[in-house]
Design a protein around this nucleic acid. Structure first.
Lengths: 183, 183
DNA sequence: GGCCGTCCAGTACGGTCGTACAGGACATAC
DNA sequence: GTATGTCCTGTACGACCGTACTGGACGGCC
């Protein structure tokens, strides 16, 4: 029980790291297994479909995102601040999160009926909260720019403490939305 | 000659589009072939290693990036503006470009001795021009945030005219660097 | 002792990938 | 008409992927 729990968490940790570095598709079960010192069948034993590994890694972030969406935000700035906090807090899995969020609907149906597809249903809601309904061209662009900045800014600064990343990221995120001519 | 040239450009166009949507690794030769109405062997005939397809697609952008790096920029703002112009102009291939640029060095050696790895040598130069040498934590984060905003902002607004994207993108890019407390 | 469930390795299977090779349709040159 | 080169298909190969199945090592329980 204890030992098995250990390997489970070790697998999760290794997978989280590899997924963050290479992305979901580019990380094989054999890679994860090698990082933990097991065979790929052992990994498959603990997480039967590969999707479940990602689902379990994503699970706490997904829950928090749901709570974040349900919470009322007075202004868009408030929502942006909450979004930045979310991205920084879950920066180790945000690449995985974004892969589901921004993936093409046409390609790779995320495995037919997979649980990972759940996140994709968030997308419209997140994006609507961010840019409003039926946004203009410029607003839509800024929405994606913000999401891109959030992902890369957090992923590429894993070595920095969370507080520092959040402060800097918040500044950049607000700057994107700010009307430079005074708004 | 004419017909063969046609299929070559048609393959390039389809590949450019699919690479932009799904990324390099997630796009198979069969996918590209299906989009053009050929078999994957026909595609392989025109572009012998798959790398060459990406290399040929990336080639003009790579040349322009070299020119951009060689050109003298008075201020960092000037360089940022040039960078935004580059990203918008080559938005159809910027995802491919970024894949090479930001890829992990450890994983997937981009095919041993591949030509695609050339772009990766740009990275240090681009990043240094962007954030200076030995940048602080916040500056480094903003650099990556800018690159992320550039990529997503341009890729996800393919339906908008170039001028509009450039104007909005330039605004966001400058905002990221702006010191909100007046700088 | 025997029994059973957990944890993991070994093996094998179907599928997809990029690629190599052989052959055919077709136009052009001689 | 025959030869030559280009353009493309069909087939096949090895490598890798995720997964199913079998079996063995180990520990707790009766």
């Amino acid at each position: 029980m204890t030992t098995a729990d250990d390997t489970r968490t070790r697998i999760l940790a290794a997978a989280r790291e590899l997924f963050a570095e290479r992305g979901y598709a580019a990380t094989s079960l054999a890679d994860i297994a090698a990082a933990v010192g097991l065979t790929k069948t052992a990994v498959a034993y603990h997480f039967h479909p590969k999707d479940r590994l990602a689902a379990e890694i994503l699970s706490p972030a997904a829950d928090d995102m749901l709570a974040l969406l349900d919470a009322g935000h007075e202004s868009r700035d408030d929502f942006v601040e909450a979004l930045v906090g979310f991205a920084v807090r879950y920066r180790s899995v945000i690449r995985l999160f974004m892969e589901d969020l921004a993936g093409d609907d046409s390609v790779s149906p995320v495995s037919p009926g997979s649980e990972r597809a759940v996140i994709r249903t968030y997308r419209d809601e997140i994006f609507t909260k961010l840019v409003g309904e039926d946004p203009g061209a410029e607003t839509r662009l800024k929405g994606w720019a913000l999401l891109g900045a959030l992902q890369w800014g957090t992923v590429k600064t894993m070595d920095l403490p969370e507080d520092q990343v959040r402060a800097a990221m918040l500044e950049s995120a607000r700057a994107i939305w700010q009307d430079p001519r005074g708004g």
